[in-house]
């Protein structure tokens, strides 16, 4: 088993005027290949902050972050862009789709930044849409899709580059329970296929469907356990 993520003494400090707020306090974490992790904790405990650092969307103010063995805390802007493009698939609570692009174009978008030619982009995007069972909605723009469908487009977009790890920050936070169930089924299926996944959630049902649950309290890991009951 190889380490996808290794965090050492990660800290995140926000400066609010002359007051320093430590959101993450010397956090250590290892996530191995094909793990299926739930990151839980009360609101304001630093889950999103941690996820954004894991997704290289934000930078820690202290500590070291190794992604697939590489020290990304030392990377410059362009290499970070490359990491985001090729190693990470990020899924947001609010989907963050381009409102005026079709589902297919949305999914194909990250491949532009990998320098893939147009035809191949379309082919791979359609394949990813098939994966989330939305290939029949390829020509629809987000406004023409339901919330669950939008999130599946976002998942297809995260998957299209075949990333090392899938990071989802409250992916079902905007969805009803039935759609949540479908999305979770999709994550489980992806896990079965060997995908490494970290999901942020504050719902115990969702955490219960993951293999490992990490509980965050005030910027440190309060508990880290493996679920006994699982499919």
């Amino acid at each position: 088993m190889s380490q996808v993520i290794k965090l050492e003494a990660i800290g995140k400090r926000y400066l609010m005027g002359d007051q320093a707020v430590d959101v993450l306090n010397g956090l250590d974490l290892i996530v191995n290949t094909n793990e299926f992790v739930a990151l839980t904790g009360p609101s304001g405990s630093g889950k999103s902050t941690l996820m954004n650092i894991l997704g290289c969307l934000d930078k820690p103010t202290a500590g070291q972050y190794l992604l697939s063995g590489e020290d990304v805390s030392q990377f410059d802007e362009n290499r970070l862009a490359q990491v985001r493009n090729q190693h990470i698939g990020f899924i947001f609570q609010s989907f963050n789709l381009m409102p005026r692009m079709t589902a297919l174009d949305n999914v194909a978008q990250p491949l532009i930044f990998s320098g893939i030619p147009l035809k191949e982009r379309k082919r791979r995007a359609l394949e990813a849409l098939k994966h989330v069972e939305l290939d029949d909605r390829a020509d629809h723009i987000p406004a023409q899709l339901s919330g669950g469908q939008r999130q599946r487009v976002a998942i297809a977009r995260a998957l299209v580059t075949k990333p090392d790890i899938l990071l989802a920050d409250e992916p079902t936070g905007n969805l009803d329970s039935k759609t949540t169930d479908a999305i979770m089924n999709l994550f489980e299926a992806l896990h079965q296929e060997g995908q490494t996944i970290v999901i942020v959630t504050h719902e115990s049902e969702i955490a219960g469907r993951c293999k490992r649950v990490i509980d965050l309290r005030d910027g440190v890991i309060a508990s880290d356990s493996f679920n006994e009951v699982s499919a």
Binding site: E77, A81, V83, N85, F90, N96, P110
Partner: peptide, 16 residues
């Protein structure tokens, strides 16, 4: 700005 944020999250470089 949001659009730029999305593109950056997906791996767009500043130059692009």
């Amino acid at each position: 700005t949001r659009e730029i944020g999305i593109n950056k999250a997906l791996g767009a470089t500043r130059q692009f």
